[in-house]
């Protein structure tokens, strides 16, 4: 396992310990969810409607105010963490390779979640969902998770976030945290796919990966550009003016991602592959709150 060697596992253990120190005092595997259910912690009241369970009527309140109100409790459940990993061909680019970097980040986040006794699932997608690591719990599933990640390959397909996430949300599964690890190079726009997550009650968080060669391309003169996702080639003559315009367009794309996340209150972590993945994970834990 070249990508996940012993040093990598040591770093995962370190990240897990750091995450425990950070969130000390909280109950493991007992996260509050937005679902109202049969927990022991009172949440609020609501009007009684016929068919409700009489056991949850607040008789004391009925005696005082002559009004039938139903007590609601916050259900305590395990956190479900879904890691959506982009396996499109555009991820197989850059030095260091974006896909390798994405797998490491995914592995780190999954390891931390498993160590916290959360339920973790990894969903690989390109133009659609290509592979799924089902929900798992406990550190004993780490090795199988790593094997799954190592078996993944970049598909010669273009990114289609909307289609992939539509397939994801139509599955019968519990809501939870969705961490999208991708370069977001979707010609149709990344917003539609993330909107689906939001609208279906998931908590999306974007891990936006950018290769240095994408931000600062070093192309000059007559070249034949080859789109890795589509395989199309195109002869262009790149001048300094074109490079300036490219940098401006790329910067506008990054601003668009940030503005979207800010507008909808989503967590967003953008990084280049030059940054060590453990530093990225720590930064996410401390500032973005992706890992609680």
């Amino acid at each position: 396992m070249e990508s996940f060697d012993s040093n990598f596992l040591k770093q995962l253990e370190y990240l897990s310990l750091v995450s425990r120190r950070v969130f000390r005092g909280q109950l493991l595997a007992q996260r509050r969810t937005l679902q109202r259910g049969t927990g022991v912690e009172f949440a609020d009241h609501r009007q009684y409607t016929p068919g409700d369970d009489f056991r949850y009527l607040d008789w004391n309140l009925y005696a005082r105010h002559d009004e039938l109100l139903l007590k609601r409790f916050q259900e305590e459940a395990d956190l479900h963490v879904y890691l959506l990993l982009d396996c499109s061909r555009s991820m197989d680019f850059g030095q260091p390779n974006k896909f390798d970097y994405a797998r490491r980040v995914t592995a780190a986040l999954a390891y931390i979640a498993l160590a916290d006794l959360d339920r973790v699932s990894v969903v690989a997608f390109a133009s659609n969902i290509v592979d799924v690591f089902p929900l798992a719990r406990g550190k004993q599933r780490v090795l199988s998770l790593l094997k799954f990640l190592q078996s993944l390959r970049c598909r010669a397909e273009r990114t289609d976030l909307e289609r992939s996430i539509r397939s994801f949300v139509h599955r019968q599964q519990r809501l939870g945290l969705v961490i999208l690890v991708s370069d977001l190079f979707d010609p149709g726009g990344f917003e539609r796919g993330v909107d689906l997550l939001r609208h279906h009650g998931y908590e999306p968080h974007l891990v936006h990966l950018v290769a240095q060669q994408e931000a600062e391309p070093r192309l000059r003169g007559d070249v034949e550009l080859e789109d890795l996702e589509t395989g199309q080639t195109r002869r262009v003559t790149v001048t300094e003016r074109h490079l300036r315009q490219y940098r401006q367009a790329f910067a506008e794309f990054l601003e668009r991602v940030e503005a979207y996340c800010c507008r909808h209150g989503l967590g967003c972590t953008r990084t280049t592959t030059q940054v060590p993945f453990e530093e990225l994970v720590l930064r996410m834990m401390r500032s973005a709150g992706a890992v609680r």
């Binding site: 991820m91 190079f185 994408e214 192309l219 070249v223 550009l225 789109d227 996702e229 199309q232």
Partner: peptide, 18 residues
């Protein structure tokens, strides 16, 4: 002259430029 081939992760930004 054989033109140098340069792979790029996506051509959507180049399409905006050229």
């Amino acid at each position: 002259v054989r033109v140098r081939r340069q792979p790029v992760s996506t051509s959507m930004f180049w399409s905006q430029v050229i």
